[in-house]
């Protein structure tokens, strides 16, 4: 098994907590993993990404090749498009639809959706709304993680265990809310995949 994932967003949106859960799940399942992050200058409202590689075999490169990623998981729709050159032909784009507009020349909603929908394998998730329904807008990252679940090549229980570990200290209620968000995200993705088949 080998899954190469690019996680993207804008500095400050917390993409690192998504990779932390996946990373923990991977190590607990005795998988190899490498995860390259961006620190420093670009964290100030710039675009940020993380290259996350999981495999049952040893991994060499910390970076994913162009046309090499199985999945682009983005917490921001325009940022998903930035990494399309890295997507393999059979790869999926899974993105939150809520834009983060901190620049003047941000594309129109229409152009953005047209471009995303022109891609053959795309899952659009209104993660902010779903997270609110689950009890907290702050869980939108976890909704996105759930939406990525069908593409990770890992058992869903491993992600649930990762959530329990990471949020365990914050109490039962927070854990349950995040598990709910995780499942809600997964359901959206499963529906899209089922329709595509």
């Amino acid at each position: 098994m080998k899954t190469d994932i690019i996680i993207s967003g804008v500095g400050g949106q917390g993409i690192l907590s998504i990779s932390a859960v996946i990373g923990m799940a991977a190590l607990d399942n005795d998988l190899h993993m490498k995860q390259a992050e961006v620190h420093g200058m670009s964290q100030r409202g710039g675009d940020v990404q993380s290259n996350l590689r999981i495999s049952s075999e040893p991994i060499y490169s910390d970076l994913i090749s162009l046309k090499g990623a199985d999945l682009i998981l983005s917490v921001e729709p325009m940022e998903a498009l930035r990494y399309v050159p890295f997507l393999s032909e059979s790869g999926w784009v899974v993105t939150n639809t809520t834009p983060f507009k901190n620049i003047d020349n941000y594309p129109s909603d229409e152009a953005l959706m047209d471009e995303l929908n022109s891609h053959p394998h795309v899952v659009l998730v209104d993660a902010d709304a779903i997270a609110k329904d689950c009890g907290s807008a702050r869980a939108s990252n976890i909704v996105m993680l759930g939406a990525a679940a069908p593409f990770l090549g890992m058992p869903f229980e491993a992600l649930e265990a990762g959530i329990r570990k990471i949020f365990g200290r914050k109490g039962e209620q927070i854990v349950d809310m995040n598990l709910k968000a995780l499942r809600a995200g997964k359901e959206v993705a499963e529906r899209v995949v089922a329709n595509a088949q």
């Binding site: 409202g45 399309v84 620049i103 020349n105 594309p107």
Partner: peptide
């Protein structure tokens, strides 16, 4: 090459 509509986000 990325889609033309993708704009740069310089740090600020």
């Amino acid at each position: 090459k990325v889609a033309d509509i993708v704009a740069n986000r310089p740090p600020s």
